[in-house]
Simulated assay, not measured.
Amino acid sequence: MSDITWEEPFCGEGNNCFRLGTDADGNGYVAVVGQEDSPITDSLSALRTLILDIKAGKADHLL
C-alpha cells in the first residue's frame, strides 16, 4: 500500500471519529480512527464528493 498522508481526525456527535487521507497517486482514503491500516479507498474525487455531501447534511445519518 502507498504511503498515506492522514488529516486530523474528524469526530461527529457520539464520538464517531474518522480520518481522511491521500497518497501520491491521487487516491483518497477514509478510515475509522485507530483502524487506519484497513481504510476504504476510492478516487479522491469520489471521496471528496461523499464528504462534502455529508458535511452539507445530505447524508448526516452516516455519521
Rank of each mutant, 00 (worst) to 15 (best):
C11R: 11
C11F: 10
C11L: 10
G12W: 13
E13L: 15
E13S: 14
E13C: 13
E13Y: 15
E13G: 14
G14Q: 13
G14N: 15
G14W: 13
G14V: 09
G14D: 13
G14F: 14
N15F: 13
N15E: 15
N15K: 13
F18P: 00
F18Y: 15
F18I: 10
F18M: 11
F18N: 01
F18S: 00
R19E: 11
R19T: 08
R19H: 07
L20A: 04
L20W: 01
G21H: 06
G21S: 09
G21V: 08
G21K: 05
T22A: 09
T22Y: 05
D23S: 10
D23N: 15
A24E: 11
A24F: 06
A24Q: 11
D25A: 13
D25M: 05
D25V: 00
D25H: 09
G26W: 00
G26Q: 02
G26H: 04
N27I: 01
N27R: 10
G28I: 02
G28L: 00
Y29T: 00
Y29F: 14
V30T: 08
V30G: 02
A31C: 09
A31G: 04
A31N: 02
V32A: 10
V33G: 01
G34Q: 08
G34W: 06
G34T: 08
Q35R: 11
Q35T: 07
Q35H: 12
E36H: 03
E36Y: 06
D37S: 15
D37V: 07
S38F: 12
S38C: 10
P39H: 03
P39N: 07
I40P: 03
I40F: 15
I40V: 15
T41I: 07
T41K: 08
T41C: 06
T41D: 06
D42F: 02
D42T: 02
D42V: 04
D42G: 13
D42Y: 03
S43N: 08
S43Q: 03
S43Y: 02
